[in-house]
């Protein structure tokens, strides 16, 4: 199977995960969005050099992964994809600040990006894009943004399918591996035309079924006790680790004990 075909099979991984029935999957999407948002805000608002204070934040993804039965390896692989950009920025900073402080900032940036990307992926994998959209609408996010998000997500999948068709057609008639630069422009041009046609057909099929710019997604969201408990417990934990240096606290306790 070509790498691209393999990628397409993998691109649906998050959608497939979102159909799980675990405790985390059953938590209200609004609550999960809020918890993820608070988590990300807390992580990014720590000072650049406070690497040790980031450690307690690992508990959140660890607990969510273990309770939601989501395979960890593919999730980490997707998290790593975002790292080259962060590493690039970190290295640039290291060039400016060639000391321990610069190294700490680099490490902090790395950990922060892993945590935030991982938590976002976990939100999608345990909630699904449709439910996230429903949650965002309930949180009064403007419809136009939610629609854009939904459409972009759905069209990425469709575009990938079309890209695979174009690349497969090329590779079947090409003796070389990969796409030659000479033909890349043609393939890209054809690909955009195909994608345009496909997008037009899908839009037509949507408007023929009454689509008028509003994305109507199923049943209304209901709250249960477990949702409130989930929200409160995580907020308490985030506040705790934001305002108290838990690592230092444990170090002190360990020091007293030993």
């Amino acid at each position: 199977m070509s790498k691209l075909n393999y990628s397409l099979r993998q691109i649906r991984f998050l959608d497939e995960c979102s159909e799980g029935k675990s405790l985390i999957h059953r938590i209200n999407p609004i609550v999960k969005i809020l918890v993820t948002l608070i988590y990300i805000i807390c992580v990014v608002s720590l000072e650049g050099y406070e690497v040790n204070r980031l450690i307690p934040f690992f508990l959140y993804p660890v607990i969510i992964i273990s309770l939601s039965d989501i395979p960890i390896a593919p999730l980490l692989k997707r998290t790593v994809i975002s790292l080259p950009f962060i590493l690039g920025i970190g290295f640039l900073n290291l060039l400016i600040e060639r000391n321990l402080h610069g190294l700490l900032i680099f490490l902090s940036l790395l950990i922060k990006s892993i945590l935030t990307v991982l938590s976002s992926l976990l939100l999608i994998a345990t909630t699904g894009m449709d439910n996230i959209a429903k949650g965002l609408l309930a949180l009064k996010v403007p419809k136009i943004f939610v629609l854009q998000l939904m459409m972009t997500y759905k069209y990425i999948l469709i575009f990938t399918e079309e890209l695979i068709t174009s690349v497969n057609a090329y590779e079947l008639r090409s003796s070389e591996g990969g796409i030659s630069l000479k033909f890349a422009g043609n393939i890209l041009g054809r690909f955009f035309l195909r994608v345009y046609d496909r997008a037009k057909n899908i839009y037509n099929s949507m408007i023929l079924r009454g689509f008028n710019g509003e994305f109507n997604i199923g049943k209304k969201i209901s709250f249960a006790n477990k949702d409130i408990i989930f929200l409160i417990l995580w907020i308490i934990y985030f506040v705790l680790i934001m305002f108290f240096d838990v690592v230092k606290f444990f170090e002190l306790i360990l020091g007293v004990v030993t």
């Binding site: 699904g128 894009m129 496909r198 099929s205």
Partner: peptide, 11 residues
């Protein structure tokens, strides 16, 4: 539609 994929865009 001729291509059923055009009509199936939800999960």
């Amino acid at each position: 539609f001729q291509n059923p994929d055009d009509q199936l865009f939800m999960n």
